[in-house]
Design a protein around this nucleic acid. Sequence first.
DNA 1: GGCTAGTCGTCCTTTTCCGA
DNA 2: TCGGAAAAGGACGACTAGCC
Length: 315
Amino acid sequence: MIGQRIKETRHRNNLTQEELADGIISRTYLSLIEKGSVQPSTNVLIKLSERLNCSLNDLMSETSNFRYNDVEVFREIVFHEYKVEHNDFSTIPELMNKEYEKADEISSADCGRLHLLYAKYYRHEGDALQMIRQADQSLSKLSNNVINQFYIDALLIKTAYLVERGEVTEVLDLLEDTYAMIYPMNELNLGKLKILFEIIECYYRKEQYFTCRRLIDKYVDLERRMQVHYKEKELGVLSAKVAAFENDFEMLERLVDQSETEELILLKCYNLYKKGRIRECVEYFKSYPKNTDELKDDPLMLDIYNELKDKIGTL
DNA sequence: GGCTAGTCGTCCTTTTCCGA
DNA sequence: TCGGAAAAGGACGACTAGCC
């Protein structure tokens, strides 16, 4: 129950009821919440979660099996999540051997987080089959609770796998359904951006560039309102490609101004060519790699490359 | 039928008091 | 000092009756 989760998290933060409640609710009311005698409002839970340095979902997660020994497992999960976040997967096999996920006492939320760690490990190891199995198990366990950042991470692992297999339409359904569910939520701002970014990439793969433009504008607006940033460079590249498609050369010039990637170099060439600055275009085009294998999955960029090659490649 | 005011019950919260 | 119990107030939604 929520009260028990709050109490445990408060103890972990070495706070008294007085200290946790101060300025949010009365100390006595916090006592009632922890006992489970009352159901606090979401507003109160948000404020408490902020002071407890945890997410609202952490407090609202399914906790029927929550026991003190679970706290030890919880701490271990957080430890491994920190390591994985810093690209250190060396401790995961040891964690797997403990088979915490098979214990009856473990909550479905923690179980989901364990499977997510395993999925990330197998992704790092390049074992796609095990990765997708673990991601599916993670989603299955985490779907028992309110959607949280871990659910979104597991979903993105799964969708990346499906996109690789060409199942873009199915991925779009999954992503758009999830986005619709989390959009009204006041938290998960980064999660919203992550999902929206993947949706934009899917529409790009489906060559629906006008939809991409609409969603990119929505993404930028969301970033501005939430004051959260995610994959700015990647979005800049996508935006530049769409601008090229739309023949919006003013925008394209702004976006390729600091050409860092091969894709942006090609787009800069295209922009120079369209503006009649052929000599500069030729110079830039010489620096673009001649291997076009990476463009075979990007018809828009392949078209741009072929057009430039035909027009100026021989100059 | 639609709008408004009054009533009632529930939920959320606070204050006060008390015990460990 | 910390935490629990009881009582009470305020806000809000559901329901009903009266009026146009």
